[in-house]
């Protein structure tokens, strides 16, 4: 790809032609504060926090500004600082001050932007505070929607549209009364929302937050067991329990995306009813057995039956390769076409 050279705050850097100034900066390890930007989405340019000065005369937002050869960008110009500071102060003056009890504390883009810009209690005190008072929508079993924390970056709306093509949510009303909502502002469960949680995963604040989100002590890389797609996941583990799942952005299959099952359906892992060993029926009662014992029993029984006496039911939760093997085994070894799959039900 063709490269162009530009200067940001005195640093010369190379960037792909067609990329934006913000992308170029972030790719080179330079932070320009931003709130409504997300690498998966078309830049919207709404939060105005990523303003920069271009070629010493023009104020522009950097997230939609294409890089140009020889461009000179300043992120610390006094005018840039003034606009950025007011913008962030306005956001904070309209945001609940409940950081310590907020699930996104220390992992919040608004906090990050606010601390970078350096807002002070003194300056903030001058503002009239007003926080949107709307009931929390807790209808969804997996996540809550708290409009009072929403900064209207639109990332959720764009995710639902651009990435998921579901469009369960959109902007509602206008001006200061704008919210993100469904038809008639009904609870999210009454919309076509599939609870995939892609919006929740991208929300920069806690306006969209999982109902339970304990912070994990470590993460384990794995593959989702729900279907044959094989999405890469990172299991959040705390003690011996799985407490959360997030998509693995490095996995080429799903590049971080997950569906409702993969993201929220992890409780079976630590469920007391979950089978952790094979069960073998002895005297009419199922009792735990070793794999060797179980497989021996299966092999012994299979060899006594062939053709129409046999049928196999495979599962969607094993890999495509395993499913292939089962049907091959059924047809070639067991000599029957009696093979089916639970996803067909």
């Amino acid at each position: 790809m063709k490269k162009v050279t530009l200067t940001i705050d005195g640093l010369q850097l190379r960037a792909d032609e067609g990329s934006t100034v913000l992308q170029a900066a972030l790719a080179n390890g330079l932070y320009i504060p931003n709130l409504c930007n997300h690498p998966d989405l078309v830049p919207a340019g709404l939060c105005r926090v990523c303003v920069v000065k271009v070629d010493d005369w023009k104020i522009s937002i950097s997230c939609k500004l294409p890089v140009k050869e020889g461009m000179v960008i300043s992120t610390e110009d006094p005018e840039v600082q003034r606009i950025r500071k007011s913008t962030v102060e306005l956001l904070v003056a309209n945001h609940p001050m409940t950081c310590l009890t907020c699930s996104r504390d220390a992992n919040c883009e608004l906090q990050r932007v606010a601390s970078y810009v350096g807002i002070t209690q003194e300056s903030l005190k001058r503002y009239r505070r007003s926080v949107r008072q709307l009931p929390i929508d807790s209808s969804n079993p997996f996540f809550d929607i708290d409009h009072s924390k929403c900064v209207l970056c639109g990332i959720c709306v764009r995710t639902c549209d651009e990435l998921q093509n579901i469009n369960a949510i959109d902007y509602v009303r206008r001006g200061v009364h704008t919210t993100v909502g469904t038809l008639g502002n009904k609870p999210i469960t009454q919309s076509c929302c599939e609870s995939c949680g892609e919006c929740v995963a991208r929300c920069p604040v806690a306006a969209l937050a999982p109902k339970e989100s304990p912070i994990s002590m470590r993460e384990v890389k794995s593959v989702c067991t729900y279907c044959g797609v094989g999405c890469g996941i990172l299991l959040g583990v705390r003690g011996e329990k799985v407490v959360g799942v997030r998509g693995d952005r490095d996995n080429p299959v799903n590049r971080g995306s997950l569906c409702v099952k993969g993201r929220y359906g992890f409780k079976f892992i630590n469920h007391p009813d979950r089978l952790t060993t094979p069960l073998v029926r002895k005297d009419g009662v199922l009792v735990p057995a070793s794999w060797d014992e179980a497989l021996e029993r299966v092999a012994a029984n299979f060899s006594e039956h062939k053709g129409e006496q046999f049928a196999a039911l495979a599962s969607a939760r094993i890999t495509n390769e395993d499913n292939y093997l089962i049907q091959k085994f059924t047809r070639a070894v067991m000599q029957t076409n009696n093979i089916d799959h639970c996803a067909r039900l």
Binding site: N167, D170, V172, T182, L183, G184, N185, C192
Partner: peptide
């Protein structure tokens, strides 16, 4: 159109 879009436009 998505239902949400109809309301998004109407409420604007």
């Amino acid at each position: 159109l998505p239902e949400s879009r109809v309301y998004a436009v109407a409420s604007f």
